[in-house]
Design a protein around this nucleic acid. Structure first.
Lengths: 329, 329
DNA sequence: ATGAAAGCGCTAACAT
DNA sequence: ATGTTAGCGCTTTCAT
């Protein structure tokens, strides 16, 4: 692999001139430029990012922290991040943490090491103390999951309002006993969605009953199956379920079907995220749509702005309740 | 951010000694080491990967090329790659090409630029000419999709045999008219799976009929829906379907359900990949299981071996037919 | 318009 | 055991 020296030699110019040509500087005589471009072609030269980055102390690499690549919610957001990044001449490094602190450290170090220019964290289980420390010296953006009153800019939706809308929809349908399949309430979004759930119940004078609220460990299908299995064993069975993730809702749906009950007649169900699979279930799933792609674009733009030294403000995006068969009796 | 110079100065030693300490060289006196470690802590020093990589001309970054992150098949493979990479002190850069040649170029250039040490391609639509050129000078491994008789090492399964097993299973169940939902046959795996399909039919003296074979543009759910819609309009409807991807099969299943037919009584169905969704459908999906995780680990190991200068052989992994409700009449 | 040279942060060969 | 120094490939300031 040729380097800039060899190109310079072959073209009969200095390395500075070659550098000017590859960086499209104006002040190069057309004839010189031609000579250089020729040498580049002949030698099949590609500038080394390593040398360039070291010199410029930037890598044009963005790290995206996610707990698991297997959740379709993240993949859609990532699409948005990726497209925006590429449009701005950045690339992304996907950091899957599995909520494992050691993995997390690897990626944090890449930032400190100047191997990446900034980070977008979508990991609800991220170590916030470390992330805050990092954010003191490096560009950091939170996406979807965030910290109330923290100093790191975020982009997210109004989780409480979204949950409120979902549950209100179920109430309007005549449901009095509505279960909540929530994830671990150590996560902010889980606490917020629960608040929205309770607010809707309270507004319509419905009782809030602890046994109607099930907490899952994770967001896998299997967790939804498990949750529904418990809820179906209740003396006072719910007539509707709100799950804080489509994956959970789909697992719940599976279990309801397996138990011989019918959705939505015996049990209505609402999910959250509008992952593409939510339209493939039988019946199709009513769900709260997050603007995943847009969220990704927004996060990437915020980060790139931050890297460029600008100040950025946190942003709340709109959600939308998508009514489908699982609540159409 | 402190650099190695400042650490050396603070510790009262040379930069070489600091370098030795951070690289765990043996030949450092315990007392000196302590001084250096102290200085590192005080200055909050992190070695710059940029400097180190430039010097060593390696990045310890592996590029993984996939057409789309949204297909769960890839995410499982990636998990395997990622874990193996990290265990060997590498990181992965996920390159989503959207089968777009320009995107592809970005990642190829990163290799040429020494910003990444090697590439695993899982993109069936990859530009093989370019990839071959790259492979002359850089470590490249093909995963899942490959080239017959090419010079690039690959890891995959026996697609023809797998398809043969799937279709034979449907025949044994008594099906005489079996449709094939295939993807574009410009892809090798599509041609191979078709061959397996035909081989099974021929073996049992069943006719191969063109109208029973539908080709989709992509592998999305919606493509499966579309395919099934066409097949259900046939004069001679099939009594079973083999789809070359679970996503297609799930779309097909959706359409069958929507049309009022019953799976598996009216129509049996077999998918391919065993993505996690395939167990959440109603009925659950019979499918050919690829060892996705293992395939990822294998690919990563092959690539790392290649980077280390070793020769590697191509590998065929085993598949398995997972029989579930969609073929249990 | 072009060139010479310094220097980004690090490692390793060589010297002591 | 430790220090000195060249150099990885590039960009950019300062001369000319």
């Amino acid at each position: 692999m040729a380097n800039i020296q060899q190109v310079a030699q072959k073209a009969g110019v200095s390395v500075a001139t070659v550098s000017r040509v590859i960086n499209h500087a104006e002040s190069v005589a057309p004839k010189t430029r031609l000579k250089v471009e020729n040498a580049i072609k002949v030698l099949n030269y590609e500038p080394s990012m390593l040398g360039r980055n070291l010199r410029n102390s930037e890598s044009r690499l963005l790290i995206v922290l996610i707990p698991s690549i297997s959740n379709p919610f993240y993949t859609e957001v990532i699409n948005g991040i990726q497209n925006t990044a590429i449009a701005n001449n950045y690339n992304i490094l996907l950091g899957e943490t599995d909520s494992n602190p050691q993995r997390e450290n690897i990626y944090f170090n890449m930032i400190k090491n100047k191997l990446a220019d900034g980070v977008i964290s979508m990991d609800p289980a991220v170590n916030m103390k470390k992330l805050n420390d990092l954010a003191e010296k490096h560009p950091v953006i939170l996406c979807s999951e965030y910290v109330e009153g923290g100093s790191i800019p975020y982009v997210t939706i109004d989780n409480e309002l979204a949950a409120y809308h979902a549950v209100k929809h179920l109430i309007k349908l005549g449901n009095k006993k509505i279960a909540l399949i929530n994830s671990d309430e150590k996560f902010l979004y889980a606490r917020q969605r629960r608040r929205g759930y309770e607010r809707a119940l309270r507004e319509f004078d419905l009782p809030i009953r602890e046994e109607m609220i099930y907490h899952t460990k994770q967001l896998d299908f299997q967790d939804g199956v498990q949750a529904m299995r418990m809820l179906l064993q209740l003396n006072q069975k719910p007539s509707a379920v709100f799950a804080v993730s489509d994956t959970l809702a789909i697992g719940a749906l599976k279990e309801i079907n397996a138990s011989g009950l019918h959705v939505p007649d015996d049990m209505a169900i609402v999910g959250f995220d509008k992952i593409s699979f939510s339209n493939m279930t039988n019946p199709t799933l009513t769900t709260v749509s997050q603007p995943m792609y847009k969220m990704g674009c927004t996060a990437a733009n915020m980060l790139i702005n931050r890297i460029s030294g600008n100040n950025v403000e946190s942003i709340l995006l709109d959600h939308e309740l998508v009514i489908r068969e699982s609540t159409m009796g």
